[in-house]
Design a protein around this nucleic acid. Structure first.
Length: 215
DNA sequence: ACATTAAGTGATT
DNA sequence: AATCACTTAATGT
């Protein structure tokens, strides 16, 4: 009882400003809230796309992975959805990305069968989907730019700043190894570059922890 | 005290 | 910028 109430409130709070009341009711009706700890895989490469996930709170990173290699593509936060899953409106398919929680997160899962119906019935839904697609595309291009045109040290600094903004804290609790994986580099290289940034006074290094001097 | 894991570094490609 | 090989430091048992 109270469970359902809280869930309704949670959904209204996170998504209420996005959709008209009628659609919101439908969303509350058919959506299931999934709670995940930090560092859990929400969706993995090769998984069938059965649900559209909406991030209610927390944050998620979307990365490409081949064999054991990984590369961070972009983050999704509260109010966002994953563009990858949107293509299932057109065609039933499997995921080509991995979505991992980077904070304890609650995600609203909506079966994909509603996609098409809502597309034709609700203008707020159409607008949301198109805008969402657009902003994911923009972020993806930003990432491509970073890989193509920035040196690794610049990319690392951008990564740290992005992390800090995302968490709302200058403290980043990652190992050098984890950062290396996100940037698709090696631990040794990241350690060296971090050391340089520390010498320049941009950061302070500790075990499992990096503190940014400023954003 | 010991083992394990994270981080630092010189040398080489 | 990556890899190897090794050292040093921090942390858990």
């Amino acid at each position: 009882m109270t469970e359902a109430r809280t869930q309704r409130e949670l959904i209204e709070e996170s998504l209420g400003f996005l959709f008209e009341a009628e659609l919101l009711e439908e969303i509350i009706e058919v959506g299931k809230v999934k709670s995940l700890e930090s560092d859990q895989i929400l969706l993995d490469t090769g998984d069938d796309l059965l649900y559209i996930p909406f991030i209610l709170d927390g944050a998620i990173k979307v990365s490409r992975d081949r064999d054991e290699e990984e590369l961070l593509l972009y983050y999704i936060e509260s109010g966002d959805t994953c563009a990858m899953t949107l293509q299932c409106t057109v065609r039933k398919s499997v995921s080509e990305i991995r979505a991992t929680t980077i904070e304890p997160s609650r995600i609203l899962m909506i079966p994909i069968m509603y996609m098409e119906k809502w597309m034709s019935n609700y203008s707020s839904w159409r607008r949301y989907i198109l805008e969402s697609y657009h902003s994911r595309m923009t972020e993806l291009i930003e990432t491509v730019d970073a890989i193509a045109f920035m040196r690794l040290d610049e990319r690392l600094e951008k990564y740290l700043v992005d992390q800090a903004k995302l968490k709302g804290s200058l403290e980043i609790k990652h190992t050098h190894q984890q950062i290396a994986e996100d940037l698709h580099s090696s631990r040794v290289v990241i350690s060296r570059l971090l050391k340089q940034l520390e010498t320049k006074g941009r950061i302070q290094l500790y075990r499992n922890r990096i503190v940014l001097s400023s954003i």
